[in-house]
Design a protein around this nucleic acid. Structure first.
Length: 408
DNA sequence: GCCGTTTTCGGCCCGACTGTTTTCAGTCG
């Protein structure tokens, strides 16, 4: 039982509790515990073997009850609460939550009223126009659900950062060119440089957000606009990748950039810290708070200001995952991130002698200009003749050439 | 269900948008 597997089960318990209408704070406890387990450095199997129940309780967001549930999971392979919840609902109910726009309340409603327990049944009911009879749902909801099911079935996976960044930069440059836009930036997991990115989040600042939103929605960059307000536009790129744009006033730009860069866990931790200092943070700024009343604004125009307002150094987006970066920013012990200039060499390069794109000379010159200390030329051997593998003599010639160039 | 330089009880991050509502619940990020 890995931490990731245990976290998955706690997450499903949270979903099932939500559908069954449990206390929302109890549900959140399971979600937080799941997140905590995922980022915990040591496997809970080892923790439990060494320190027992108390060891589990030392993990953040794991208290008495959840430690006991994890103990049950580790010793019996299951959690009775999970089995009981599963028995209450059909197998497909959790998949219903994967449909965009369908939350636990709606899933609970369609299950209790229409006994709809999977996506196929939901689609049929929507086509028969039965959903509109339910309280709180209407024809528009039916339409949206059908569209969401189609989108869900099409399936949009997270994409590699390298595939996403060019798309994001294209959208950002549209915004920067807009006459009403003062500044624009990529936010979300793309700005945090996560290895994979799901949605593209964009932030812009303007004195006239409604014009920017209107024009962005009409720009043709989005194949489909799913939501368009005065400060927010959501839509889909050709191919189905979803995009969210938020536009805020300049005095809130830093707060909004912080807010929409995330991660969710980092933001929650930051706002919790602010609360303890009688401050409240939202996407418009940092405000003093007294007896639940929001007072004077103390920061918001830049991210540096926002972090400084809660006694922290500015935290690079790459570190914003709630894995100790707040504590490090408070102590002044944030690590220096690796920069391009730190790269001292490259040990895997092919030349045009086999299947590379540049000649040995071009590569050597480009690396010299980058200030590399060393390079490794790794052309194919004769064993891979199809990729233009080099003979022994050709490799020796490369070595001679490189040795000669060292004096250059 | 967790947690504690306000507290062992009583809080728990915050706001935009939509659809279905005559004032708000649900969902999302």
């Amino acid at each position: 039982m890995t931490n990731a597997e245990a976290a998955e089960i706690l997450g499903r318990i949270a979903d099932l509790l939500a559908i069954s209408g449990a206390n929302s704070f109890r549900i959140r406890s399971y979600r937080q515990a799941a997140e905590s387990l995922e980022s915990w450095g040591e496997e809970i199997e080892e923790v439990y073997a060494k320190q027992g129940l108390q060891g589990l309780r030392n993990i953040p967001d794991i208290g008495k009850s959840l430690a006991e549930k994890l103990e049950e999971l580790l010793t019996t392979g299951q959690i009775s609460l999970y089995q009981e919840l599963l028995a209450q609902f059909p197998d497909g109910i959790l998949e219903l939550l994967q449909v965009p726009g369908l939350g636990p309340r709606t899933v609970a409603l369609i299950w209790s009223e229409l006994e709809i327990g999977d996506i196929d049944e939901l689609e049929q009911a929507a086509r028969r126009q039965e959903l509109r009879e339910l309280p709180g749902l209407g024809p528009k909801s039916e339409e949206k659900i059908l569209a969401s099911i189609a989108r869900y079935r099409q399936g949009m996976q997270r994409a590699l950062l390298g595939e996403i960044l060019p798309l994001g930069e294209q959208l950002v440059s549209y915004l920067r060119d807009h006459p009403r836009v003062i500044a624009a930036e990529l936010a979300g997991s793309a700005r945090r440089r996560r290895a994979t990115v799901g949605d593209l989040d964009l932030l812009a600042t303007s004195e006239h957000p409604e014009e920017v939103c209107r024009d962005f929605a009409a720009s043709g960059l989005l194949e489909e606009v799913t939501m368009a307000g005065d400060t927010k536009v959501s839509g889909l790129l050709a191919g189905g990748r979803s995009v969210d744009l938020r536009v805020v006033a300049p005095e809130s730009y830093g707060a909004a950039l912080q807010y929409f860069t995330g991660s969710q866990a980092h933001g929650v931790a930051l706002r919790t810290r602010a609360q303890k200092m009688n401050l409240t943070i939202n996407e418009y700024g940092v405000f003093k708070q007294r007896n639940g009343e929001t007072g004077e604004k103390v920061a918001g125009a830049t991210e540096e200001e926002v972090y400084a307002a809660v006694g922290l150094a500015w935290i690079p987006p790459e570190l914003r995952e709630d894995r100790g970066e707040l504590e490090a920013a408070a102590d002044g012990t944030l690590p220096d991130l690796i920069e391009l200039a730190d790269i001292r060499g490259d040990l895997h390069m092919h030349t045009t002698s086999s299947d590379g794109k540049c000649s040995l000379e071009e590569i050597a010159e480009a690396c010299r200009q980058r200030g590399y200390n060393y390079i490794g030329i790794t052309d194919h051997s004769p064993a891979l003749r199809v990729a233009g593998g080099l003979t022994e003599e050709e490799i020796i010639a490369q070595i001679h050439w490189l040795a000669w160039r060292r004096t250059y």
